[in-house]
Design a protein around this nucleic acid. Structure first.
Lengths: 238, 238
DNA sequence: CAAATACAAATTGTATACATAAGGTATTAA
DNA sequence: TTAATACCTTATGTATACAATTTGTATTTG
């Protein structure tokens, strides 16, 4: 056993910044201020800068010479790629996870799933998105493929950020979708346990399709009611 | 224009270490010594440690708490994944590169290809492998997909390390394979220029199949002649 | 007044010194 | 002789001071 106190302060800080980026607490495209973060986490610039390098390597931020770290932006050109790429990555990872899972992987996955379910039912949207993130990360680790994992992680960053609204259902229909997503997780765990690769892939595709519509709506929201616009325009209000 | 002198010392160092890892000049699994590298590149530990974090993020090295950086190992379990994953990643990237290439991408790619051809014909094996690496990295950039790029980069690290022998042909047949690989590059450039995604994918798969056999042989080399082994065993030589 | 320049402030990069943790060696006790 | 422990050496982590670069502002000049 190792002393848990001062050693993981850096790791904790890293995880906390990641979390804040995933929950949009730190906005895409915004700059990370070295000084204020050092102050906030009570550490000097040297370890903080190393944290920045890490965040850069994992795609959370973009580093530029003499210009600090900027949270990865989510412009439209990139979003297009997101929707185009997600199915391949997720499906490939699901297949490998089913093939290479170990018995000992299942309990932690199940544990995450249970807290995830609780968060969705409790209406804690930010936490739900974060636990969904962890769930899929665990599947990524189960796949035991160091080549696919970096891409999966990069996808999950934006997927989690986009899905912040998903777990804040505004209608009964949306609430039903969330409930179905939770059910799909359970089915996926069963498929992994049975090492049924095909079923794991199918469920993953279903899971993706479920959230895709909602996510796309986040990117291109419903247009404003036209009559309101014409009313204003017709009156030359401004 | 910016002064090119002292600013990119760090970047140069990063690139040089990457190069040395790719050419097996620094062996897989070996430790990076902070002090000696600082000495070699004439910089202090602070920027060197940031370089380590970067290398870690890109998968060149593995970082462990209080134990420094170790060059990514290439054990058999991982190699299995390598051969399993390469086709998806390479094919996906090729498709996107054909779709999203810009005219201005072609000249630099062609330039790399020409120096690559020269290196293969001149018998400079290390340089050839490195230029092949750059060629495929440029295709990756052409694809303009930040989600796939991390996996491609990770694959190319091990692909380049494995292919160190590929460009050191030991027979006429092997020399012919290298020549064919060079030709395939040319054909791929043409496919990208024409934005013929299907053709780009097909050529990429051919290209992969060509090197795969040679690469697999590197992982599982021909067994030693049996008679030698039995001779030794029979005589109880030790 | 616009553009350019010079200066000042803030931010980022690097070096060094110090703190902490890991690994190895010698000494001691059983 | 062996095993345990204390100590020393080495390597890693952090803080601070200093250097260089960038950015904002004021001043000057046409």
């Amino acid at each position: 056993m190792s002393r848990p106190l001062p050693t993981d302060r850096k790791k904790d800080c890293l995880e906390d910044i990641k979390m804040r980026i995933l929950t949009l607490d730190i906005a895409p495209g915004s700059d990370l201020d070295e000084a204020s973060l050092c102050d906030r986490y009570g550490m000097s610039r040297t370890p903080m800068r190393e944290i920045f390098q890490r965040l850069g390597g994992e795609g959370f931020v973009q580093l530029t010479q003499n210009r600090g770290a900027k949270v990865a932006s989510m412009d439209l050109a990139v979003m297009r790629m997101f929707f185009q790429t997600a199915p391949v990555i997720y499906a490939s990872v699901a297949r490998l996870a089913a093939e290479n899972r170990r018995i000992s992987d299942l309990a932690p996955l199940q544990a995450t799933q249970e807290t995830f379910r609780a968060a969705t039912e409790g209406g804690d949207a930010g936490q739900a998105a974060l636990l969904n993130h962890r769930f899929h990360l665990q599947i990524g680790e189960m796949a035991r493929n160091p080549y696919l994992l970096p891409s999966l992680k990069r996808m999950l960053i934006d997927h989690t950020r986009l899905s912040q609204t998903f777990y804040r259902p505004a209608s009964e229909d949306e609430a039903a979708r969330v409930a179905r997503a939770v059910e799909q997780h359970e089915a996926m765990i069963a498929a992994f346990e049975a090492q049924d690769a095909q079923r794991a892939v199918d469920l993953t595709i279903d899971h993706w399709n479920l959230s895709r519509d909602r996510l796309e709506q986040f990117v291109t929201p419903d247009p404003l009611p036209i009559d309101v616009l014409t009313e204003k325009g017709g009156a030359h209000a401004v």
